[in-house]
């Protein structure tokens, strides 16, 4: 039986050093960022303790938030607390800021990172719906170069992401919420803090008066990965917001999601409340 102390841990200080370690099977290890999910899983025996770990927390390139070419770049090892507090994210990504503020509690937010939340690939990862509505691209890197993958393609399946063994997640590139756009985030948890979501959702809307010009909707914890709701988005886009449309959208969500029951909630409630979350978003516009 292995203990945490027995894991061999390397801490590269440059991106190149990290990628070099990843390029060789002998030095390749499990990627560790904040450790808030991984260490708990190891301790619980949910996943076996690895032989070696590459701790990414000292790589400066992974910890930057910047605006470039009209998009917002967030490094994989940027903490939830940093996203919550940074002027750029607060301005351009209110749903993501709200999502990060709902993860765990202050201690978890100070250690946990965006890259870790996505790489952990839990359907209950709170950041994913907000990333989906911001049309996020995941940029991965290896010694061979970078790849840019749309977020919805990057999330392959339950606990599966499109990362090659020699790659790490470099950053996320997000489209800022346009001027006049509105973002919402909603989390149904089991308690006020330190809660894993039963269901959570995010939306990005651009309205012109009562007309919906743009509608992006995403939910988490209702499928194997966080998902966009294309049918409901299509139903709403270009329409004039009214009570009947809200009813139709809620009904459409119920057709579009097929959640399962687990220890946190029932399938029936999850499905119903998915519709209610979307209703809540629309009624708040």
């Amino acid at each position: 039986m292995k203990t945490l102390e027995e894991i061999f841990c390397r801490q590269p200080e440059t991106l190149n050093e990290a990628l070099t370690l990843l390029s060789d099977e002998a030095t390749r290890g499990v990627l560790l960022s904040g450790g808030t999910d991984l260490v708990v899983q190891w301790q619980a025996g949910a996943v076996p303790m690895p032989e070696q770990v590459i701790d990414l927390s000292a790589v400066p390139e992974l910890k930057e938030i910047s605006a470039q070419d009209g998009c917002l770049r967030i490094g994989a090892c940027v903490t939830h607390a940093a996203i919550r507090n940074h002027a750029l994210t607060r301005e351009a990504l209110p749903a993501l800021v709200a999502a990060c503020a709902s993860i765990g509690a202050r201690q978890i937010q100070s250690r946990g990172t965006l890259g870790g939340n996505v790489a952990n690939a839990s359907p209950a990862g709170d950041a994913s719906p907000a990333l989906l509505v911001a049309d996020a691209r995941v940029v991965t890197a290896s010694l061979a170069g970078e790849r840019c993958i749309p977020m919805n393609e990057f999330l392959l399946d339950y606990r599966k992401i499109d990362r090659h063994p020699d790659e790490l997640i470099l950053r996320f590139e997000l489209t800022p919420c346009p001027q006049g756009g509105i973002e919402r985030f909603c989390k149904i948890g089991t308690r006020g803090a330190q809660a894993i979501s039963k269901v959570m959702g995010a939306c990005r809307v651009v309205m012109h008066g009562k007309d919906i010009q743009h509608m992006a909707l995403a939910l988490g914890s209702v499928a194997a990965t966080a998902i966009r709701l294309p049918e409901t988005e299509k139903l709403l886009a270009g329409k004039t917001l009214c009570e009947e449309l809200v009813d139709e959208a809620e009904a459409c969500v119920l057709r579009e999601v097929h959640p399962i029951a687990d220890i946190r909630s029932t399938a029936e409630y999850r499905r119903w409340v998915s519709g209610r979350i979307v209703r809540g978003f629309l009624e708040s516009l």
């Binding site: 708990v40 619980a44 509690a105 089991t190 308690r191 006020g192 803090a193 330190q194 220890i263 946190r264």
Partner: peptide, 27 residues
């Protein structure tokens, strides 16, 4: 309001602090 556990396949289903939910200061 929160604490729930059932015997499933012989054992309590909520068997860690991750699944056995007790109130926090915010509750």
């Amino acid at each position: 309001l929160m604490e729930t556990m059932q015997v499933r396949k012989g054992l309590y289903d909520a068997n860690r602090l991750q699944t056995y939910i007790i109130p926090t200061a915010l509750d």
